Amino acid sequence: MDILSSRIILRPTDYERTLAFYRDSLGLAIAREYPGGTVFFAGQSLIEVAAHGGSGRPSQFDGAIWLQVRDVSDAAAELALKGVALDRAPVQEPWGLIEMWVRDPDGVPIVLVEIPPDHPIRRDTRRSAG
């Protein structure tokens, strides 16, 4: 099977409130809009907020949305100015990433991650030729 693209689809209890959170609070750019939904750019992925197909009850989302940012402290300050409560302030984890946690209006966990310059994700671990 060839996977050509992917996106996360959210079906919130309050479409307008969740749309405003992803658009205004997180500042995600809109990839496209359609009647009853909005798709946002989220780095190399997409997040779709759909006003259709939901149960009207809060989601039992068992996971998290992982968003990489350049500077998690700057992101924390920006979110605070927009009134977004932090679930957990930025902290460097034992695995080396700097993580901060927030939630969307339906309680979906969102981890904002800064990758330090010396982290293995940033280093080319291939052997040099020669």
Rank of each mutant, 00 (worst) to 15 (best):
R126C: 11
E33Y: 10
E93I: 07
S5T: 12
A80Y: 02
A42R: 01
A75H: 02
W66A: 06
T18M: 14
Q92F: 08
S55D: 14
L19F: 08
D74Y: 04
D87Q: 12
D106N: 12
L26G: 03
L97C: 05
I110H: 04
I110F: 06
D14L: 13
I98W: 00
G36C: 15
S55N: 05
I121A: 08
E114N: 01
L19T: 05
S128I: 14
R70Y: 04
P105Q: 15
G37C: 14
D74E: 11
L28N: 01
L46I: 00
G63A: 13
R23K: 12
G107P: 08
Y15S: 11
Q92W: 03
A29I: 05
S128D: 14
D87R: 07
F21D: 08
T18D: 14
V39Y: 14
H119E: 02
D24F: 03
I9L: 09
S55T: 12
R11W: 02
L67Q: 01
G54H: 08
M1Q: 06
G107I: 05
R11F: 09
A129R: 14
T18I: 07
P120G: 14
G63W: 05
Q44W: 09
P94I: 09
A20G: 12
M100V: 01
I121F: 10
R11E: 09
P105V: 05
S128L: 14
Q44S: 11
L79V: 01
G43F: 09
R123G: 05
W66K: 08
P117V: 13
Y15Q: 10
Y22I: 06
F61P: 02
E16A: 11
L46K: 06
P94H: 08
T13I: 05
S128T: 13
A50D: 15
L19Q: 10
G96T: 12
T13D: 06
T125D: 01
K82T: 05
V108H: 07
P109R: 04
I3R: 00
I98K: 00
D106A: 12
V84Q: 06
F40C: 10
A31F: 15
S25G: 01
A76E: 04
V84G: 08
L26Y: 00
A77G: 15
R32Q: 10
L46R: 10
D106Q: 07
D62H: 10
R57G: 11
A64K: 08
D118K: 00
S5M: 11
V84A: 12
P117D: 14
L112C: 02
D124V: 00
G27D: 07
A75S: 10
V69K: 01
V91M: 13
I98S: 05
L28F: 03
H119Q: 05
L86T: 00
H119V: 02
K82P: 09
R11N: 09
D62S: 12
D62C: 11
P117G: 10
E16H: 07
S55A: 04
P35C: 15
W101T: 06
Q60M: 10
L4Y: 03
G54C: 10
V84I: 05
S45A: 14
A76V: 04
I8R: 04
R7W: 05
A51G: 15
A42Y: 01
A64Q: 10
D104N: 03
M1K: 05
G96V: 14
